[in-house]
Design a protein around this nucleic acid. Structure first.
Length: 291
DNA sequence: ATCCAGGTTGTCC
DNA sequence: GGACAACATGGA
């Protein structure tokens, strides 16, 4: 991984980083592709605009080395050796096929509160509508990036900005039955009744149980938050697609238990999860993936 | 019109 | 413990 500053842009040369697939695989909801093929979105460190040249080079616009090393590297998990991860996963022939499809996807590390809130909104919902609700949430209750030019966009509102609101206040979001879940999460974050140290570093099952104290946070939402917001790369969210994929890829044994990943994937199950998700979705369902 | 969307909750056995 | 409808909203 090498970087080069050219004017206001920073050029990153690296393999195993596909910007578009990373931003468009369902782990974040505030980025969009522009007409020229670049990507732009609002992060906790301001608006980020980047272009993937497609030949091992990603250009981060209006970015210096400080912004890159301090924010962008952890945001896209760029310090991790995905080559080594892929090699380990490929020890399992089934996973090798998934790796081939998911190559270049990075597991993002987004702000903790934003991730919890976003995946609460994601439940029983589709991605365009999730994005719409989050967009309205930010416009309604977030701080403008530039108070003089609100068209520049809004930061994701902090929990304390939402904690004292009522479901009526959230009605313009059109979040449906999720509005009371958002409020419960905001209140628990704001009053610090969730032990975030435990979520960040405790045993995974305890971290998960801690997040599940929030109404509207079940196993899947908790695992998504752990994986995409808390850097818990060993978390393995099981949605309907993954359940179907696992049943097809790893036919249940005679004990009939839930199919689980091979041992080689255990330390970074979340990365394997994204690869499998990408794999199964690229086949538009089971199709060729089912053996 | 009916079904579905990267689920969770409350309520039945 | 496991099964099952209900939950708001909007697009196909």
């Amino acid at each position: 991984m090498t970087v080069k500053q050219q004017g206001k842009d920073l050029y990153l040369y690296t393999d195993l980083f596909d910007l578009g697939r990373t931003l468009d695989c369902g782990q974040c909801f505030r980025f969009e592709e522009t007409a020229d093929g670049s990507w732009t979105g609002i992060t906790h460190f301001g608006r980020l605009t980047a272009t993937d040249t497609g030949s091992g080079c990603v250009i981060f616009h209006d970015t210096d080395e400080y912004r890159f090393s301090e924010y962008i590297v952890p945001f896209f998990d760029l310090e991790r050796d995905y080559g080594a991860v892929n090699d380990a996963l490929c020890a399992d022939p089934v996973l090798a096929a998934a790796v081939a499809h998911g190559r270049g996807i990075r597991i993002m590390r987004q702000p903790e509160w934003e991730t919890v809130c976003s995946f609460i909104i994601s439940q029983n919902n589709n991605i365009p509508r999730i994005k719409g609700i989050i967009s309205r949430l930010c416009e309604s209750f977030g701080t403008p990036l530039d108070p003089r030019r609100k068209a520049e966009g809004f930061a994701f509102p902090g929990p304390s900005a939402l904690a004292r609101l009522s479901t009526g206040d959230l009605a313009p979001l059109r979040a449906g039955f999720r509005d009371r879940y958002i409020l419960d999460a905001a209140r628990k974050f704001a009053e610090q009744s969730i032990d975030l140290a435990l979520v960040r570093g405790g045993p995974l099952d305890q971290a998960r149980a801690e997040l599940m104290k929030i109404k509207g946070v079940g196993e899947k939402v908790a695992d998504c938050a752990l994986l995409f917001g808390f850097g818990r790369i060993e978390a393995f969210p099981r949605d309907v697609w993954i359940k179907r994929a696992m049943a097809a890829l790893y036919p249940p044994g005679k004990n009939g238990g839930e199919p689980c990943l091979p041992a080689c994937a255990r330390p970074f199950a979340g990365i394997a999860q994204q690869y499998i998700f990408s794999y199964i979705r690229s086949h538009n369902g089971l199709g060729a993936a089912a053996v």
